[in-house]
């Protein structure tokens, strides 16, 4: 039965070919996931082009030098950093409208915020730093530790208080990079498990799986 045999041949080769393509896709995907860049190495486009440079940047670099914890105000009190409420933005932006700013986009962007506030609507940002669901991360204890051990802060040179500690706002760069220099925030550190565990080992912190996974 040569006809049937050739059919089997064609079928076999097609299945083999298909299998190869799938295998390749899987290998590519896993490799990409394993070695790839952090999730948001490119800054996502946000609904309002919020410049951290202006808000958190030093006065020397053209910013106003607001401390991180002024807006992310509960980051040193609880697990999540929290983005500020629209109302909180309006503390300043009810006065600062961006009119006459050197930046050509300032007024249009601030208007978006003021419109949201007037309508009582939230602003839907795109998350930049995201840990998977099976990781429980708590901000405040990490910040407390870094405040007591400013030597461990990386990515920026922290301002050290006379008693040898640093303020909460000085610690953020360790994981988030120098946000004050980012016009649009992007992820700088892998924030994968190896990254966490390395740091925990270096600092003699708990490395039990159940410290973060539950």
């Amino acid at each position: 039965m040569p006809k049937a045999r050739s059919h089997f041949l064609i079928l076999g080769s097609l299945v083999g070919l298909g299998g190869l393509v799938v295998l390749g896709a899987v290998v590519f995907f896993l490799g990409n996931a394993w070695f790839g860049l952090p999730v948001n190495a490119q800054a996502p486009v946000q609904p309002i082009a919020f410049p951290h440079t202006v808000h958190a940047g030093t006065e020397a670099s053209g910013g106003v030098g607001i401390d991180c914890t002024f807006c992310h105000r509960n980051v040193d009190k609880g697990p999540t950093a929290t983005v500020p409420s629209v109302q909180q933005c309006m503390f300043c932006h009810s006065k600062i409208t961006g009119a006459g700013s050197a930046s050509p986009t300032a007024e249009t962007e601030i208007t978006k915020l003021r419109d949201a506030s007037a309508a009582g609507e939230p602003v839907n940002w795109i998350r930049v730093h995201r840990l998977p669901d099976h990781v429980q991360f708590v901000h405040d204890v990490h910040i407390t530790y870094l405040m007591a051990n400013p030597g461990k802060i990386v990515n920026v040179t922290p301002v050290i208080n006379p008693d040898g500690t640093a303020d909460a706002g000085q610690t953020c760069s360790t994981c988030h990079g120098d946000v004050a220099k980012m016009a649009a925030v992007q992820q700088v550190r892998a924030l994968k498990m190896g990254d966490c565990v390395d740091c925990h080992r270096q600092n003699n912190a708990y490395t039990d799986c159940a410290a973060c996974h539950y």
Binding site: V22, V83, V86, N124
Partner: peptide, 27 residues
């Protein structure tokens, strides 16, 4: 294979609520 590995869009949403009480510590 690929849809199973992307992050669902809603999980990338983080909201500035219009108004939250000042003493509410998120989380």
């Amino acid at each position: 294979v690929f849809s199973g590995c992307g992050i669902p869009e809603k999980e990338l949403l983080v909201q500035s609520p219009a108004l939250i009480p000042e003493d509410l510590v998120s989380g």
